[in-house]
Amino acid sequence: MTGRGIHGPAILFDRVDLTLGRTAILEGVSLHVAAGTVHAVVGPNGGGKSSLIRALLGQAPHRGIIRLDWPGDGPGTVAYVPQSVEFDRGLPLTVEDFLAVLCQRRPAFLGPDRRMGYGEALARVGMAGKERRRFGALSGGERQRVLLAQALIPAPDLIVLDEPMTALDEAGIAIFDSLLADLAAAGTTVLWVEHDLAQVRRLATRVTGLNKHVLFDGHPLEMLSPERVFDLFSSVPRRAATERIAS
Protein backbone atom coordinates (compact mmCIF):
# COMPACT_ATOMS: atom_id res chain seq x y z
CA MET A 1 0.00 0.00 0.00
CA THR A 2 2.75 2.44 1.00
CA GLY A 3 4.81 3.76 -1.88
CA ARG A 4 1.91 3.71 -4.32
CA GLY A 5 1.84 7.49 -4.19
CA ILE A 6 -1.49 9.23 -3.85
CA HIS A 7 -4.22 6.78 -4.80
CA GLY A 8 -7.17 8.48 -3.19
CA PRO A 9 -9.54 10.72 -5.14
CA ALA A 10 -10.00 14.47 -4.90
CA ILE A 11 -13.57 15.43 -4.02
CA LEU A 12 -15.42 18.47 -5.27
CA PHE A 13 -18.65 19.73 -3.75
CA ASP A 14 -20.04 22.55 -5.86
CA ARG A 15 -23.06 24.52 -4.60
CA VAL A 16 -24.62 21.49 -2.99
CA ASP A 17 -28.13 21.92 -1.60
CA LEU A 18 -29.85 19.27 0.45
CA THR A 19 -33.44 19.59 1.59
CA LEU A 20 -35.24 16.96 3.62
CA GLY A 21 -38.97 17.42 3.90
CA ARG A 22 -39.20 21.19 4.00
CA THR A 23 -36.01 21.70 6.01
CA ALA A 24 -32.91 22.96 4.24
CA ILE A 25 -30.07 20.89 5.66
CA LEU A 26 -27.29 22.13 3.37
CA GLU A 27 -27.32 25.31 1.33
CA GLY A 28 -24.78 26.23 -1.33
CA VAL A 29 -22.03 24.07 0.12
CA SER A 30 -18.88 24.32 -2.00
CA LEU A 31 -15.83 22.49 -0.84
CA HIS A 32 -12.69 20.93 -2.25
CA VAL A 33 -11.03 17.94 -0.66
CA ALA A 34 -7.52 17.45 -2.03
CA ALA A 35 -6.46 13.93 -2.94
CA GLY A 36 -4.54 12.06 -0.29
CA THR A 37 -5.23 14.52 2.54
CA VAL A 38 -6.90 14.20 5.91
CA HIS A 39 -9.78 16.63 5.58
CA ALA A 40 -11.87 17.24 8.68
CA VAL A 41 -15.42 18.60 8.77
CA VAL A 42 -16.51 20.18 12.05
CA GLY A 43 -19.67 21.92 13.15
CA PRO A 44 -22.48 21.86 15.69
CA ASN A 45 -24.87 18.95 16.16
CA GLY A 46 -27.45 19.04 13.39
CA GLY A 47 -25.11 21.16 11.28
CA GLY A 48 -25.45 18.72 8.37
CA LYS A 49 -22.15 16.85 8.61
CA SER A 50 -23.65 13.37 8.40
CA SER A 51 -25.98 14.61 5.67
CA LEU A 52 -22.98 15.83 3.67
CA ILE A 53 -21.53 12.34 3.94
CA ARG A 54 -24.80 10.75 2.85
CA ALA A 55 -24.89 13.04 -0.16
CA LEU A 56 -21.29 12.12 -1.02
CA LEU A 57 -22.11 8.43 -0.78
CA GLY A 58 -25.00 8.96 -3.18
CA GLN A 59 -27.62 8.26 -0.54
CA ALA A 60 -29.31 11.62 -0.15
CA PRO A 61 -31.10 13.54 -2.87
CA HIS A 62 -29.19 16.76 -3.45
CA ARG A 63 -28.79 19.52 -5.97
CA GLY A 64 -25.44 20.77 -7.18
CA ILE A 65 -22.38 18.78 -8.09
CA ILE A 66 -20.46 16.22 -6.08
CA ARG A 67 -17.57 14.84 -8.08
CA LEU A 68 -14.86 12.35 -7.24
CA ASP A 69 -11.71 12.65 -9.32
CA TRP A 70 -9.95 9.33 -9.19
CA PRO A 71 -6.25 9.25 -10.04
CA GLY A 72 -6.34 5.88 -11.82
CA ASP A 73 -8.52 4.49 -14.55
CA GLY A 74 -11.69 3.97 -12.60
CA PRO A 75 -13.22 4.38 -9.20
CA GLY A 76 -11.29 2.78 -6.35
CA THR A 77 -12.45 1.40 -3.04
CA VAL A 78 -14.61 3.58 -0.82
CA ALA A 79 -14.81 2.70 2.86
CA TYR A 80 -17.30 4.14 5.31
CA VAL A 81 -17.30 4.17 9.09
CA PRO A 82 -20.82 5.01 10.26
CA GLN A 83 -21.57 6.78 13.52
CA SER A 84 -23.16 3.59 14.82
CA VAL A 85 -24.75 0.32 13.78
CA GLU A 86 -28.23 -0.32 15.07
CA PHE A 87 -29.16 -3.89 15.65
CA ASP A 88 -30.27 -6.40 18.12
CA ARG A 89 -27.49 -6.66 20.72
CA GLY A 90 -28.51 -10.21 21.61
CA LEU A 91 -27.85 -11.55 18.13
CA PRO A 92 -25.45 -14.51 18.19
CA LEU A 93 -22.83 -12.79 16.09
CA THR A 94 -19.12 -12.77 16.87
CA VAL A 95 -16.76 -9.97 15.88
CA GLU A 96 -15.44 -12.25 13.16
CA ASP A 97 -18.99 -13.07 11.98
CA PHE A 98 -19.70 -9.36 11.75
CA LEU A 99 -16.66 -8.79 9.55
CA ALA A 100 -17.57 -11.83 7.46
CA VAL A 101 -21.09 -10.49 6.87
CA LEU A 102 -19.61 -7.20 5.67
CA CYS A 103 -16.63 -8.31 3.67
CA GLN A 104 -17.13 -11.74 2.11
CA ARG A 105 -19.45 -13.39 -0.36
CA ARG A 106 -19.39 -16.86 1.18
CA PRO A 107 -22.28 -17.10 3.66
CA ALA A 108 -20.95 -15.91 6.99
CA PHE A 109 -22.47 -18.90 8.80
CA LEU A 110 -20.03 -21.15 6.96
CA GLY A 111 -17.24 -19.36 8.80
CA PRO A 112 -14.78 -16.59 8.01
CA ASP A 113 -12.87 -16.56 4.75
CA ARG A 114 -9.26 -16.75 5.96
CA ARG A 115 -7.96 -14.85 2.95
CA MET A 116 -9.79 -11.68 3.95
CA GLY A 117 -7.33 -10.79 6.74
CA TYR A 118 -9.83 -10.15 9.52
CA GLY A 119 -7.29 -10.92 12.24
CA GLU A 120 -4.81 -8.46 10.79
CA ALA A 121 -7.40 -5.68 10.51
CA LEU A 122 -8.50 -6.30 14.09
CA ALA A 123 -4.89 -6.19 15.24
CA ARG A 124 -4.50 -2.79 13.61
CA VAL A 125 -7.28 -1.40 15.79
CA GLY A 126 -6.03 -3.10 18.94
CA MET A 127 -8.66 -5.84 18.92
CA ALA A 128 -6.31 -8.77 18.29
CA GLY A 129 -7.58 -11.98 19.82
CA LYS A 130 -11.14 -10.71 20.22
CA GLU A 131 -12.43 -12.39 17.04
CA ARG A 132 -14.75 -14.69 18.96
CA ARG A 133 -16.26 -12.09 21.28
CA ARG A 134 -19.95 -11.45 20.76
CA PHE A 135 -20.32 -8.23 18.80
CA GLY A 136 -23.41 -7.13 20.72
CA ALA A 137 -21.57 -7.47 24.02
CA LEU A 138 -18.69 -5.17 23.09
CA SER A 139 -18.32 -1.77 24.73
CA GLY A 140 -19.04 1.32 22.67
CA GLY A 141 -15.34 1.95 22.13
CA GLU A 142 -14.69 -1.64 21.09
CA ARG A 143 -17.56 -1.54 18.61
CA GLN A 144 -16.14 1.64 17.17
CA ARG A 145 -12.79 -0.08 16.74
CA VAL A 146 -14.44 -2.96 14.88
CA LEU A 147 -16.19 -0.45 12.64
CA LEU A 148 -12.77 1.03 11.89
CA ALA A 149 -11.37 -2.44 11.22
CA GLN A 150 -14.07 -3.24 8.63
CA ALA A 151 -13.15 -0.09 6.74
CA LEU A 152 -9.64 -1.50 6.21
CA ILE A 153 -10.98 -4.53 4.28
CA PRO A 154 -10.30 -4.22 1.42
CA ALA A 155 -7.63 -1.49 1.64
CA PRO A 156 -9.51 1.77 0.95
CA ASP A 157 -8.63 4.56 -1.46
CA LEU A 158 -11.16 6.90 0.09
CA ILE A 159 -12.26 6.52 3.68
CA VAL A 160 -15.22 8.43 5.07
CA LEU A 161 -15.37 8.63 8.85
CA ASP A 162 -18.41 9.87 10.79
CA GLU A 163 -17.34 10.80 14.32
CA PRO A 164 -15.19 7.71 14.74
CA MET A 165 -13.64 8.76 18.06
CA THR A 166 -16.74 9.38 20.14
CA ALA A 167 -16.37 6.38 22.44
CA LEU A 168 -12.64 5.78 22.14
CA ASP A 169 -10.46 5.65 25.26
CA GLU A 170 -6.84 6.86 25.49
CA ALA A 171 -5.50 3.67 23.91
CA GLY A 172 -8.17 3.86 21.24
CA ILE A 173 -7.21 7.44 20.42
CA ALA A 174 -3.56 6.44 20.08
CA ILE A 175 -4.58 3.64 17.72
CA PHE A 176 -6.74 6.01 15.71
CA ASP A 177 -3.77 8.43 15.47
CA SER A 178 -1.48 5.85 13.99
CA LEU A 179 -4.19 4.49 11.71
CA LEU A 180 -4.80 7.96 10.31
CA ALA A 181 -1.05 8.48 9.89
CA ASP A 182 -0.77 5.15 8.03
CA LEU A 183 -3.66 6.04 5.73
CA ALA A 184 -2.23 9.49 5.01
CA ALA A 185 1.22 8.04 4.34
CA ALA A 186 -0.33 5.54 1.97
CA GLY A 187 -1.96 8.32 -0.05
CA THR A 188 -5.54 7.53 0.95
CA THR A 189 -8.03 10.39 0.95
CA VAL A 190 -9.64 10.75 4.37
CA LEU A 191 -12.87 12.69 4.88
CA TRP A 192 -13.36 12.92 8.60
CA VAL A 193 -16.38 14.32 10.44
CA GLU A 194 -15.37 15.07 14.02
CA HIS A 195 -16.60 17.13 16.93
CA ASP A 196 -13.41 16.94 19.00
CA LEU A 197 -11.57 20.06 17.80
CA ALA A 198 -8.38 19.29 19.70
CA GLN A 199 -8.02 16.05 17.74
CA VAL A 200 -8.75 17.85 14.48
CA ARG A 201 -6.10 20.49 15.25
CA ARG A 202 -3.65 17.69 15.93
CA LEU A 203 -4.39 15.31 13.06
CA ALA A 204 -6.10 17.01 10.13
CA THR A 205 -4.41 18.53 7.08
CA ARG A 206 -7.35 20.79 6.47
CA VAL A 207 -10.62 21.61 8.17
CA THR A 208 -14.01 22.87 7.04
CA GLY A 209 -16.58 24.36 9.42
CA LEU A 210 -20.12 23.45 8.45
CA ASN A 211 -23.47 24.61 9.75
CA LYS A 212 -25.86 24.42 6.82
CA HIS A 213 -23.35 26.68 5.02
CA VAL A 214 -19.58 26.47 4.87
CA LEU A 215 -18.44 28.71 7.74
CA PHE A 216 -14.71 28.50 7.07
CA ASP A 217 -12.19 26.33 5.32
CA GLY A 218 -8.46 26.26 5.85
CA HIS A 219 -5.56 25.05 7.94
CA PRO A 220 -6.66 23.62 11.30
CA LEU A 221 -4.24 25.68 13.40
CA GLU A 222 -5.45 28.94 11.86
CA MET A 223 -9.11 28.02 11.55
CA LEU A 224 -9.68 26.54 14.94
CA SER A 225 -8.67 29.55 17.00
CA PRO A 226 -10.72 30.00 20.16
CA GLU A 227 -13.05 32.76 18.88
CA ARG A 228 -13.90 30.93 15.69
CA VAL A 229 -14.71 27.86 17.67
CA PHE A 230 -17.04 29.90 19.83
CA ASP A 231 -18.85 31.22 16.75
CA LEU A 232 -19.14 27.77 15.32
CA PHE A 233 -20.81 26.18 18.26
CA SER A 234 -22.99 29.04 19.33
CA SER A 235 -26.27 29.74 17.61
CA VAL A 236 -26.73 33.12 19.30
CA PRO A 237 -24.64 36.11 18.22
CA ARG A 238 -21.36 36.17 20.04
CA ARG A 239 -21.68 39.52 21.75
CA ALA A 240 -25.07 38.67 23.21
CA ALA A 241 -23.80 35.37 24.47
CA THR A 242 -20.71 36.90 26.06
CA GLU A 243 -22.84 39.48 27.79
CA ARG A 244 -25.16 36.83 29.11
CA ILE A 245 -22.30 34.86 30.51
CA ALA A 246 -20.81 38.03 32.01
CA SER A 247 -24.04 39.12 33.69
Binding site: L57, R106, P107, F109
Partner: peptide, 21 residues
Protein backbone atom coordinates in the same frame (compact mmCIF):
# COMPACT_ATOMS: atom_id res chain seq x y z
CA UNK B 1 -30.79 -17.11 -0.14
CA UNK B 2 -27.37 -18.70 0.26
CA UNK B 3 -25.33 -16.39 -1.99
CA UNK B 4 -27.26 -13.33 -0.76
CA UNK B 5 -27.22 -14.29 2.91
CA UNK B 6 -24.51 -11.82 4.00
CA UNK B 7 -25.99 -8.97 2.04
CA UNK B 8 -29.51 -9.59 3.29
CA UNK B 9 -28.14 -9.46 6.83
CA UNK B 10 -25.94 -6.43 6.25
CA UNK B 11 -28.84 -4.44 4.84
CA UNK B 12 -30.56 -4.72 8.21
CA UNK B 13 -27.45 -3.78 10.25
CA UNK B 14 -26.78 -0.45 8.61
CA UNK B 15 -28.33 0.40 5.23
CA UNK B 16 -25.85 3.20 4.52
CA UNK B 17 -22.85 0.95 5.12
CA UNK B 18 -24.53 -1.79 3.10
CA UNK B 19 -24.97 0.53 0.12
CA UNK B 20 -21.34 1.65 0.29
CA UNK B 21 -20.44 -2.02 0.04
Amino acid sequence: MLPLFNRLLLASFNPALARVR
